[in-house]
Structure formats: structure tokens, C-alpha cells
């Protein structure tokens, strides 16, 4: 039973669930993910392991409610259980030996960036955190980031909190000023990661991106999660999710992410109606 031990709403559309899954908690590493099915008839959706407690045997996930699958997950209460929870899947982020890293997160991607920033901090790496949100109401995990970053910058699109603008502006500034990052690790919307790579590439700062293609099994069985990296086909669920940002074909990845848009819109509406009925 994958019981929900704790549930926390981080902002109006982002929820954290802490789930009892002792075997996964024992093995999990920053950068890995799980696949969850909220209910018996739910689809399989991948979510990054946002945190784990090996002693308590719990794994946390932080997700944005964007469609039917995440709505179903979000409808579960503390004490209830998710139907299926499998992991840890994918490769852990490689952090060994890094001395000076900039972690760039966007939106809910910050939930994925946080455990990596924490792991870096724990091994003594100097961590610069740059995170971006659309506005103040959407800011999540600020305290957690501050606790593990040597320097921390918040950007909002509308300037309602932190600095106004996109994450690439302070990143460019830091690099130009001679921050001398060994590596930039970026996680967020594909379009943001594409622009982070555009920013770092001219300066030749190694950039690792965390890819999130549409997945089914998460074990290398379906090939649905394939990406083109350096001209080769890679399966994100087993070869990734982290890849060398300079090599990833972002345009293709963005396009593949839209494969089921009409279905998803329909499913979202149907789920909304269902939830409304349950409330009445």
C-alpha cells in the first residue's frame, strides 16, 4: 500500500505528496523518477522524486495539476493510497566531483531541481540557484532552496516577486562576470531549457538538461520516450532523464510532447466534470 502520509499544497496548482514506499526510499537518488497511477483506471504518469526519507521510508513527489492524470492524483487525500508507484527509475544526476554549479529551475521544474541542489550542497559543492516563476503566487520551495544554495535568485515574469525577467538574464550575467561554473543543471519547461542552452553554449559552459517526454512503462520497453541526442535515438526513461543540453534536439522534443493535445483537452474536461459531481 502506497499510503499518502502527508499532503501539502505548495501553490494553487502544485501539490506535494509524501508517500510510504520504503523500498524506493532506500534506493532513490536525486534526479530519478517514479511512475504513478493514482487509481485503478488511471494512466501511468512519470514524476520526479522530489525528496525521500530513508528512515521513515517515504518518497515525496511534487506535481503541477495540468490535466486528467494529475487531477486524479490531486484528488487523493491524506491517508488514502495511490494505486501503483514504481521506481526509482532512470539514472541519477551525476554530481560527483562538481565544485561550482548553477542550478536553474523553472516553475514546477524547481521541485525536480531542489533534490539535486540539496545533494550538491551536501557534498560541499558551491550552489548558485536561479529559479523562475510566472508570478509571486506560483513561487514554491523558496525556503528549501535558500537552505541549500550559496546564492539564490528568484525571477518572476511580471516582477511581482524577486527580480523581473527570465532566468537566462541572471545566468548570462553570472557567466559573463566570471562565475566559472563547472556545470549548469537546468530543469523546467522545454522552451526554458532550450534558452538556457542558448545562453551557456556560446560560453561553452557544460549544461545538463532534464528531459520529460511522454512515457508509458518507464523501463525501456515502449520507446515512446525517445529523443534525438547528438543525432542518436535515446530512451529518456533508461538513458536519461538527464542529457547533455548541447546535443538535445529540443524542437523535436517539444513537438513530440504535443502528440495527444486534443485527447488531453478532452480528458481534462471529463475529469473536471467528474470532480464537480463528486463535490455536489
Amino acid at each position: 500500500m502506497f499510503t499518502i502520509i502527508k499532503r501539502r499544497e505548495l501553490n494553487p496548482t502544485v501539490t506535494e505528496l509524501c508517500i510510504h514506499a520504503p523500498l524506493i526510499a532506500k534506493k532513490a537518488k536525486a534526479g530519478q523518477f517514479i511512475i504513478v497511477r493514482a487509481k485503478e483506471d488511471s494512466e501511468r504518469i512519470p514524476l520526479t522524486i522530489a525528496g525521500f526519507d530513508r528512515e521513515a521510508g517515504t518518497v515525496s513527489i511534487i506535481f503541477q495539476v495540468v490535466g486528467a492524470g494529475t487531477m486524479q492524483l490531486n484528488s487523493l487525500k491524506e491517508g488514502e493510497a495511490v494505486h501503483d508507484f514504481v521506481g526509482p527509475l532512470g539514472k541519477a544526476t551525476e554530481i560527483e566531483g562538481l565544485k561550482n554549479v548553477c542550478v536553474v529551475g523553472g516553475g514546477v521544474g524547481c521541485a525536480i531541481a531542489l533534490p539535486i541542489a540539496q545533494a550538491l550542497h551536501e557534498q560541499g559543492t558551491k550552489v548558485t540557484g536561479i529559479v523562475g516563476f510566472r508570478n509571486k503566487d506560483l513561487v514554491i520551495l523558496e525556503d528549501e532552496f535558500r537552505a541549500c544554495c550559496d546564492e539564490f535568485i528568484i525571477m518572476t515574469d511580471d516582477g511581482s516577486y524577486g527580480e523581473k525577467g527570465v532566468v537566462t538574464a541572471p545566468l548570462e550575467k553570472k557567466i559573463v562576470e566570471g562565475a566559472n561554473f563547472d556545470e549548469v543543471i537546468t530543469i523546467g519547461p522545454l522552451i526554458m531549457m532550450k534558452f538556457v542552452v542558448k545562453t551557456t553554449k556560446p560560453h561553452n559552459v557544460k549544461t545538463v538538461v532534464s528531459m520529460n517526454p511522454i512515457m508509458v512503462d518507464g523501463t525501456g520497453m515502449c520507446g515512446g520516450c525517445r529523443l534525438t541526442v547528438g543525432g542518436q535515438t535515446k530512451f529518456a526513461c533508461v538513458d536519461g532523464p538527464d542529457f547533455d543540453g548541447f546535443e538535445v534536439d529540443f524542437d523535436e522534443a517539444m513537438h513530440r510532447g504535443t502528440m495527444y493535445k486534443p485527447f488531453e483537452a478532452h480528458a481534462r474536461e471529463a475529469e473536471c466534470n467528474l470532480l464537480k459531481q463528486e463535490v455536489q
Binding site: 523500498l23 524506493i24 534506493k27 501503483d84 508507484f85 514504481v86 521506481g87 526509482p88 527509475l89 523501463t219
Partner: peptide, 9 residues
């Protein structure tokens, strides 16, 4: 079920 051997054990 939900046990990927090689990953979880």
C-alpha cells in the same frame, strides 16, 4: 507488481 528488479532490488 511494480517491482523493477535491477532498480528497486
Amino acid at each position: 507488481t511494480n517491482m523493477v528488479i535491477g532498480k528497486v532490488l
